[in-house]
Amino acid sequence: MSENLEVKLEVKELVKVFGSQPGKAIAMLEQGVSQERILGATGQTVAVNDVSFSVRNGEIFVLMGLSGSGKSTILRCINRLIEPTSGRIVVDGKDITFLPRRELRSVRQKQLGMVFQQFALLPQRTVLQNTVYGLEVRGVGKDDREKKARKTLNLVGLSGWENSYPDNLSGGMKQRVGLARALTNDPAILLMDEAFSALDPLIRQEMQDELLALQRHLNKTIVFITHDLQEALKLGDRIAFVREGTLVQVGTPREVIENPADDYVKRFIHAIVGEKGGATHVSLAVRPVG
């Protein structure tokens, strides 16, 4: 992939505290009190603690971690489905952290697409009607939006299924609709929340391959969440390991395998090395750079 160094998305010193008195928790964090003790003392849950990273144009950036590690919260802070407690979100050079509702909607409509773990298709709408949703909300005319939607449905291999209902589709097909729905809006950034985790292993690999194939000519900036290291290694240009709301290591697949920062990262790697019986195999699974 051609490296374009332009930064598309920046997350700066992001903190998210769940609870009624986030100010207290932030003050304690600044004094270096642990998250566990903050929870005990104030009842505030620190879900994301001082997370910073930037994603370059055309890059697939994987957030990797166990469930409950805070990776989903980080993703939802990017499009402010969850409001950050402090820190900054910068999209395409523009700080959107304090954008008023109306402007935020416009950013969500045009710049940030999202794909969901459980597909999240509207059951009373057909495949085509689901796919046009983003453009419909933007007020694009019916003919225009359906033309675009048919094009992306074709792209994800769903031509001929336009008038089916989600209930009649398999998991893999549902997620193709989910992907087509996000792509039809033509956002520069795609947020993918465990997008393939609910699929059967074989279908999952197929979808991973297709995402990579699509990415070759779409060249989106993608933030991809997973708890599956093999998926992370296969898809990610860079991988960030998330534990208890902090980033423990950010690096290319090769870097994290050859040089795991701590036991948490090592445990992930040993889990798949043990499964496959050798480090060489793991490095083979890593996508060649360049």
Binding site: N79, L81, R105, R108, Q109, M114, Q117, V137
Partner: peptide
Amino acid sequence: PVDLVEVGEAFGST
């Protein structure tokens, strides 16, 4: 369902 509400939000619905 929460994720369908999120769809509405994430795609910028009024």
